[in-house]
Each structure stands twice: as structure tokens, then as C-alpha cells.
Design a binder for these strands. Structure first.
Lengths: 210, 210
DNA sequence: TCTTTTCCTGACCGTATGGTCAGATTGAAG
DNA sequence: CTTCAATCTGACCATACGGTCAGGAAAAGA
């Protein structure tokens, strides 16, 4: 009974097509919402027949679930940016930079995540109650240690986390509004840098970590 | 040719039913998104037959448009909170309080607004380009005057506005996530007050206005 | 009371959607 | 070449949706 011997067989095709479909699905779910998205449109964006989607993903719900999980994992990757330093300005600054970078590179993912949470998190409720709750508890403790050591002002750690999430994700979720107020143009490289620095300076000063 | 003589006739019924339908529609659009909402479900929530909805609102789009417009007007009412003072701590503090209050009292409206913007603002694009753009320009000028007078640090006014919107609306749009991290319980009166004060203190200190 | 306008609603319709399936195609292993 | 599992897809189906409509009920004015 071999563990994983000649498994792949022809599964390179599978991996490629799954990635293609997930990418198209993320875009369509972000632009139309779960209810407004159609399997036909996702198929068109992916350049595949609709029936082929159902070969890889049995139902629309399953495809959506995979999209949300992918986003959640990307989102958690930035979580480690806060670790590895005992300087709150450095840790939180790095976290802001990581999250702003995600907002820029994965705006669709951020929108799908926001939409999922706004609708009551029907798919990722268990993630919220386990992974996210644990992660949050750990960072709250970390921030409390920073406060105890006198490196930052005694702010409410949870409210600080909410402000970090809200402010950074706003640049992804509301990018259309920001573009409109920017004369209809997407933010340039320089403007993204300015925004990141502005968020960092306002928040770090706001928590007395500068 | 009288201007507006015995107009009302029996329109009290109309006003009542329109309000009833709009309230139900706001809830359903917030929980399911535009694509996921159905006229049947809105009708059930309102306690009316579906055909009756189409008597007052010809199409689903028209009903949605009215819901979004209602929210936008509520949203603009808080805009005046920034005026009437030459102290940024007072003006921005009042604005934060007003927006936090809206997040608490109209979470569904905030969600519909967020969803609309995330999907590219198909319905309220003209509002963004006129009313919102003008309002924003006015507040940017106000903030610049505060900065010039030395009452606050020289922050980027637009990025400050984005942070105000993001942070306050987060408590409405992501209230499900916040509730989950709060042990599954909605925020209490005291917790709402704490959150408002936390947001105020972090932001006001962040812009050097304390 | 009679008339007129508003309000109400069950039944119906065309369409689009998520999902299914039988059968064709492909390509690596033997 | 043959085999066989993996991949692909046009055609199809049941359902649910937004919207329509004819006609009834109710109230306001005369």
C-alpha cells in the first residue's frame, strides 16, 4: 500500500484548470457578489465551457468556498509581519505595509472576503471562531505586552486591530470610490506609497509608537 | 390651475407601504446582496404579496435605487458634524461620533452602500462624481485650513477622510466578525461607547489634534 | 347612493440559472 | 497498438426568478 507513489498521473492539467477557474471565479464573485455571479459568466471569463467547471467543482457553493479559503490563507500570510520584533512601530508598521500590499495586489479577494463577512459569514464562520479568534487573541496579548513595556500608549488592542483591518482593506474594498475621487484614475505607484506612509504615520502616532 | 391643492387624496397608504417595503428591502439587500435578494423574499419580510411590491416599485432595480438613495442621504446628514467649529478635535470628534452612531443604527444601510461601491457603483456613480466629490473637496479645504493654522499635524487630508470612513463603517459592515470576536454577543451600550472613544482618541492623537 | 381613483392580488409567462449526463476525446502506461 | 482512466462538452432538464395583467376590493368625492 504505497503512500503517494505514481499519483499525479495527468493531474497537472487539473492543477492548471483549477487555478484558471479559481482566478476567474474570484473576479466574478468580487464584481457581482455570490448571488449575482453566474457559472456561465465564470466559465466565459475562464475561457472554458460551463460543464467543464462542474467537472472540477461540483457546485457553485463549492467553488465559492474554495475562493474564500484561498483569500483567507493569503490574508493570514500577512499576519506574521507583526512578529519578530519588540518594537511596536516596527511590527505594526510592517503589518500595515503587508496589508496595504495585499489590498493592492488582491483587491478582488478582499472584496469577496468583505462580502462574505457582510452576509453573515455563511461559509467561513468556523474560520472566524477558530483560526481568526486564536490569531486575534495572540496579537491582543502581544500588544498588551508592548503597552506594559511602555513602548506605546495604553490603547484598546482589539479596537486597534479593527482600525488596522478597516483602514488597509478600505483601499481594496472601496477602490472604486477612491478612484472616482482621484479624478477617475487608479492610484499610481507613488500614490500607493503615499497612502501607505500616511496610514502608517497616522496610526503609529495615534498609538504613541513614534 | 392650482399648484398643489387637494393632492394627497389617499397617499397616506402609499407613504406607509413604500416605507414598509423600503425597510424590508434594505434588510434583504444587506443580507443577500442585490443579486441574491429576491422580490419574493422582500415581499415576505414586508408581509405583502409580491405583486404589491411591483405596484409601488416597477422593477427590482428601481427599489434598490431608492434604498441606496435613502442611505446616501442619511450618510450626508452626518457630514455637517464637521462644520461649525475651528477646532479640529471638536469637528472631527463630532464627525466620528455621528458616523459611529450611524454604523450602530443603520448597519444594513451601510452594508448596502458598501456592496454598491464594491461592485463599481453602477447605481450611484453620478452621486460619487458630483455630491461626494464636492463634499470631499470642501472638507479637504477645511482640513488644510486647520493644518495651516497649526491646530493639527500636516496630514494628507484625503487619506484622513478615508481612514475616518473606513474605521467607522467597519463597525457596521463587519459587525458580524466583531460580534464573533466578542464571544458571539453584539456590542453592548458600554462597548459601543468604548469603541467610539477608542476611535476618537487614536485618530485625534494620530493627527496631532489633542 | 353612485362614480372614480387608488389600491390590491392570484394566476400566469418567458427567461435564465444551477446542475446533469451520455458520449466523445485525450494522453500516458503497458 | 491497445488499454483505461482522466478530461472534456453539447444538449438537456427542473426550478426559480422578475415581471405582467385582468379583475376585484376599498375608500374618497359628488
Amino acid at each position: 500500500m504505497p503512500e503517494t507513489p505514481p499519483r499525479p498521473r495527468r493531474s497537472k492539467t487539473r492543477a492548471q484548470n483549477e487555478a484558471l477557474i479559481l482566478q476567474a471565479a474570484e473576479k466574478v464573485f468580487a464584481e457581482a457578489g455570490f448571488g449575482g455571479a453566474t457559472m456561465q459568466l465564470i466559465a466565459d471569463v475562464a475561457g472554458l465551457p460551463k460543464a467543464n467547471l462542474h467537472y472540477y467543482f461540483a457546485t457553485k457553493e463549492e467553488l465559492y468556498r474554495r475562493v474564500v479559503q484561498t483569500i483567507f490563507e493569503i490574508w493570514l500570510q500577512a499576519a506574521s509581519a507583526m512578529d519578530g520584533t519588540d518594537d511596536p512601530a516596527e511590527g505594526i508598521g510592517a503589518y500595515i505595509e503587508a496589508k496595504m500590499d495585499i489590498s493592492r495586489r488582491h483587491p478582488n479577494g478582499s472584496k469577496v472576503w468583505a462580502s462574505e463577512v457582510m452576509h453573515g459569514a455563511p461559509v467561513i464562520q468556523d474560520y472566524l471562531e477558530t483560526t481568526l479568534r486564536d490569531w486575534t487573541a495572540g496579537r491582543v496579548a502581544l500588544i498588551q505586552r508592548w503597552i506594559a513595556s511602555g513602548r506605546m500608549a495604553p490603547v484598546d488592542p482589539e479596537k486597534l486591530l479593527y482600525m488596522l483591518w478597516a483602514t488597509t482593506q478600505h483601499y481594496a474594498d472601496f477602490n472604486h470610490q477612491i478612484e472616482t475621487l482621484n479624478g477617475g484614475h487608479p492610484l499610481s505607484d507613488a500614490q500607493w506609497h503615499e497612502a501607505t506612509e500616511a496610514v502608517k504615520s497616522m496610526i503609529l502616532r495615534g498609538i504613541g509608537a513614534m
